[in-house]
Structures are given as C-alpha cells and as structure tokens.
Computed example of a mutant assay.
Amino acid sequence: MADGDTYIDIGGKMSIASGKPATLDATGFAALSYTQIKGVLNIPENGDTAEDVSEPTLEDGRTEHFYGTKDGGGIDVPLKYIEGDAGQALILPGVDRDVNAVWSFKIEDSDGTITYKYGRIGPVRRRERSSNAFKGFIMPIMFNSAEVVA
C-alpha cells in the first residue's frame, strides 16, 4: 500500500507462547515459539492506562496532575470454537492449566505491525448460546507488561 492508505483489520491474528521472553524486547519476544489461536472474533481495545497522581496546593488552589503507575489492564477475547485448533486446545475449559501461569502474546495486524506483551489467561468460559451464533468461548487476559511493537 502507498503512504496515506488505510487498513482494515481483516487478516489480524493472535498467537500465544508459554512463559515470558528472556529479554523484554522484540528480539526476545520473537524468539519464543508461538501457536496461533484460530477463531478470534475480535481483540478488544487494549494498551496501558496510568493512574492519576494529583494533589492540590493551598497557594493557588489548583490540582496538579501526573501520570503514575501503569496498568496493562484486562480484556475478554471472544472465540468461535474451531475443533482441533492447536491454539484453542491450550486454553479451553477442561484443560489442566494454571490460570496464574505466564503467557506471551503476539498480535499481528493486517498491515504487518506486530505487538508483543505478556500476561495471564484466566478461566476460559462458554460464550452465550443463541440461535444466531456459533459455539464459542471467552478468553480473559490480564496484561502485565508494556507493549513491544515490532
């Protein structure tokens, strides 16, 4: 594409690897062995937020704000069940998995941008059952690192 073009998100992927990298840079994350999770319906808004550190002074009666502690937050990733998918097999209910184990995540955008981070995958739960939906699951993720964009 040429400079000034726009991109749609179709073609994006999410993959996971057990553990966190030896170094928290693109090289360290890329050295891990990732397994794609197929059936991802969307990846919700994510990225660091920061606490508001503020205090007013008597002198001028104004509150001064600073950005404090950063938090990677959490997201719920909806999945369409894909029977036999190696990525889903690692995290679906019934798998004997420590919910406090650390996983690394690789998110690939349709324009080729790769974002890495690590965190934990909580208890995966069944998505709503309805007459106009496929069988699916919700994968909760809590991020514990800054994003590394490659």
Rank of each mutant, 00 (worst) to 15 (best):
M1L: 04
M1W: 02
M1N: 06
D3L: 09
G4D: 08
T6P: 00
Y7R: 08
I8S: 13
I10R: 15
G11Y: 08
G11K: 07
K13H: 09
K13E: 15
M14T: 06
S15Y: 03
S15M: 06
I16E: 07
S18N: 07
S18R: 12
G19R: 01
G19K: 05
K20A: 09
T23A: 11
T23D: 05
T23E: 08
L24M: 05
L24P: 01
L24I: 04
L24W: 06
D25I: 04
D25M: 10
A26I: 07
T27Q: 08
F29I: 01
A30K: 09
A31S: 14
A31F: 01
L32T: 03
S33W: 04
S33F: 03
Y34D: 00
Q36Y: 01
I37P: 00
I37S: 00
K38A: 09
G39F: 00
V40Y: 03
V40R: 02
P44W: 04
E45A: 13
N46E: 07
T49F: 13
A50D: 10
A50M: 13
D52P: 07
V53G: 06
V53T: 14
S54C: 12
S54Q: 12
P56D: 15
T57L: 13
T57E: 14
T57I: 12
L58H: 11
D60L: 05
E64I: 15
E64R: 11
H65N: 14
H65T: 14
F66Y: 15
F66I: 08
K70V: 14
D71S: 15
G73L: 01
G73M: 09
G73N: 06
G74D: 12
I75Y: 01
I75A: 06
V77K: 02
P78G: 03
L79Q: 02
K80Q: 09
K80Y: 04
E83F: 11
E83I: 08
A86T: 15
A86E: 14
G87Y: 06
Q88Y: 03
A89L: 11
I91Q: 01
L92I: 13
L92G: 04
P93H: 09
G94N: 10
D98L: 13
V99W: 11
N100K: 14
N100Q: 14
N100E: 14
N100T: 10
S104L: 09
S104D: 08
S104R: 12
F105I: 08
K106H: 08
K106V: 05
D109C: 06
S110I: 00
D111P: 00
D111L: 00
D111K: 02
D111Y: 01
G112E: 02
I114H: 01
T115L: 00
T115R: 02
T115Y: 00
Y116P: 00
K117W: 10
Y118W: 13
Y118L: 04
Y118I: 07
Y118G: 03
G119F: 10
I121S: 05
G122M: 06
G122P: 02
V124A: 07
R125I: 09
R126K: 10
R126T: 11
R127D: 11
E128V: 09
E128N: 06
E128F: 10
E128K: 10
S131K: 15
N132R: 12
N132D: 14
A133H: 05
F134I: 05
K135D: 11
G136Q: 01
G136S: 02
F137E: 04
F137N: 02
M139L: 10
P140E: 06
I141Y: 07
M142N: 13
M142Q: 08
N144D: 15
S145A: 10
A146N: 13
E147R: 08
V148N: 01
V148E: 00
A150K: 09
